[in-house]
C-alpha cells in the first residue's frame, strides 16, 4: 500500500468527513494529518495491516482520533471544574495540571479496555495504593485473582502508552 497515493486520493475527502463531525476547519485539518501520521508510524513499526477498503479504514482511524480529542477536552474541562472547587492555594501549576490531565486521560483509556473486576482491582492498587491481600479481602476474591487482574491491567496500560 502506497501511503502517498492513499494521501492523494483520500486526504480531501477525509478532511470533509472530519469537518462534518467537528464543525471546525482547523481541527479537521489537524486530525486528518494525525490520521495519516498514524498510518506512517504503523508502517514504520511494521504493524500496518493490509488495507482492504481505504475509506472504511481511514474513517475508523479518524473516528478514534476524534474520540481521543473529545476525551481529552472533556477530561480537561471536568478536571478544571474539580480544581475550581478546591481552595486556591492547593491549585497546582499549569504545567502540573497538564500532566494530571494526561494521566487522567490515560487512566480513562486503560479503564475502557478492562472488564469491571480488573477496573476495580487496578484502581484500588494503583490509585488507592492498597496491598494485594487487602484488595482480595475487600472484593472477596483470591490474591491469585488479584494478580491475574493486575497483569491484564498493566498490559492495558502499556497498550495505551504505546499506541
Amino acid at each position: 500500500m502506497q501511503i502517498t497515493s492513499l494521501y492523494q486520493d483520500h486526504h480531501l475527502w477525509l478532511k470533509q468527513f472530519l469537518y462534518r463531525k467537528l464543525n471546525c476547519q482547523a481541527q479537521a485539518a489537524d486530525i486528518a494529518q494525525d490520521t495519516f501520521l498514524r498510518i506512517l508510524n504503523k508502517q514504520k513499526n511494521n504493524t500496518l495491516e493490509q488495507i482492504q477498503s481505504p475509506k472504511a479504514y481511514l474513517t475508523t482511524l479518524a473516528t478514534g482520533l476524534v474520540n481521543n480529542h473529545w476525551r481529552r477536552l472533556s477530561i480537561e474541562q471536568a478536571y478544571l471544574e474539580t480544581l475550581a472547587a478546591q481552595p486556591q492555594h492547593l491549585a497546582p501549576s499549569p504545567e502540573t495540571q497538564q500532566q494530571i490531565v494526561d494521566l487522567l486521560e490515560q487512566l480513562a483509556q486503560v479503564l475502557e479496555k478492562l472488564p469491571q473486576r480488573e477496573q476495580q482491582v487496578f484502581i484500588m492498587a494503583r490509585i488507592d495504593g492498597m496491598a494485594y491481600k487487602d484488595i482480595a479481602e475487600q472484593l472477596q476474591i483470591t490474591v491469585n485473582m488479584v494478580q491475574k487482574s493486575m497483569c491484564k491491567a498493566v498490559l492495558a496500560c502499556i497498550e495505551v502508552q504505546t499506541q
Binding site: 472533556s74 474539580t82 494530571i100 494521566l103 479503564l111 494503583r126 490509585i127 488507592d128
Partner: peptide
C-alpha cells in the same frame, strides 16, 4: 500513576463527568 495527586474518588468522578 504515582504522580496523580488525586484520590480514586476524585479521579473517577472527573473521568465520569468527562
Amino acid at each position: 500513576f504515582a504522580n496523580l495527586p488525586l484520590s480514586s474518588a476524585q479521579s473517577l468522578s472527573t473521568i465520569t463527568k468527562a
